[in-house]
Design a protein around this nucleic acid. Sequence first.
DNA 1: AAATTTGTTAACCATTTGGTTAAACTAATT
DNA 2: AATTAGTTTAACCAAATGGTTAACAAATTT
Lengths: 203, 203
Amino acid sequence: MTKTKDITTETTILNAAKSIFQRKGMDGARMQEIADEAGINKALLHYYYRSKQLLFEAVFKNAFKLLAPQLNKVLNSDDTLNDKIKNFTKNYISFTIKHPYLPNFIINELNRNPEFVQKLTSEKHFPTITKFKQQVIENIENGTIKPIKAEQLFINILALNIFPFIASPLLKGFLSINDENYKQLLEERTTEVSNFIIHAIKS
Amino acid sequence: MTKTKDITTETTILNAAKSIFQRKGMDGARMQEIADEAGINKALLHYYYRSKQLLFEAVFKNAFKLLAPQLNKVLNSDDTLNDKIKNFTKNYISFTIKHPYLPNFIINELNRNPEFVQKLTSEKHFPTITKFKQQVIENIENGTIKPIKAEQLFINILALNIFPFIASPLLKGFLSINDENYKQLLEERTTEVSNFIIHAIKS
DNA sequence: AAATTTGTTAACCATTTGGTTAAACTAATT
DNA sequence: AATTAGTTTAACCAAATGGTTAACAAATTT
């Protein structure tokens, strides 16, 4: 087996851990399972990451670093409000189709351990809404959009984009449709969602 | 301790299990912990519910039975579309403030085990969107609202209402606000959300 | 009131689980 | 060739965990 050994053992482990943790969560994941997935001995996990907790944190921070730029793109670009909404929706949905377990993983583990968000806020590239907030205020003063708290608009944007991925089994049930049709609904949302938001706030 | 013994042991166990499972999930919950919470011996759990899996399923179905009527209220009432949206938003938010762990619990466990939704669809009172769908079509034909797929509107309604509860730790982080202020934001949403939706779809 | 069924417990058990250790192997360094 | 430092493994361990058993208590039935 002459597999590309550019990939160090450490990253092999991290990728395996990512795959298992994101599917099963911290509590559901087993160290042995991660070792198997990585094709190595269980002791190696501890050699590189000391404990399950530390390995988990490495995976979590890694996942978060992937998601955060998506948000910053909306919040801190120089686009107009409308373009931000459009771009975010488009980017986010195609991004999440590539990483289907990611949003649920982050939200769920943060619920399990809410203090963990503190450790993230201090990190570089942690999204802030200051610029977005200002832009919303300006647009309201212009009369371009109707009065709305930036926080509420921000929550709405995230909700409409993220929720359908998190709640997919439930929604598939309610709508009684199969995976294929649900995926199609999601793809429609690429434009659907931004239209919905833009209409909701335009004066 | 002359505690009201109207409450049978079986329900005491179910309540304890509900509390633990909803906070920690299937994988994170411990049978001993549930026994402690119920103030009984661990063997009794098995006496009444045989296994962790069955106890969990009892809790899950129970939780779902609590949530489903909230949805049926929107979907199958005779109210106008606007009133449905208003009432659902108002009801749902106050309902969830009373049961904060419930939405995340359901969504998360359904992600862990997507086949489980099948067991629910057959249950009595499982929400269906047929009536809602028809109503949306009528409103579009009337010209009351703009064209939109009923499925998409349904997803949007749920997303805007449920997401803020599921993602609260994350959102608190992004908005850098404390519990008190976040709770206030949620309460504002009682009217905020329905206005947002109604504006988004009105022609 | 004796017998039987139902409810409850303490002690126990097999398995799983995160984690450790000491030894073996590998690759660079002396 | 010998030494050293880093990497990997098999075997092991203690604690935790879901579940069982056998004995006991409290109702319920006969």
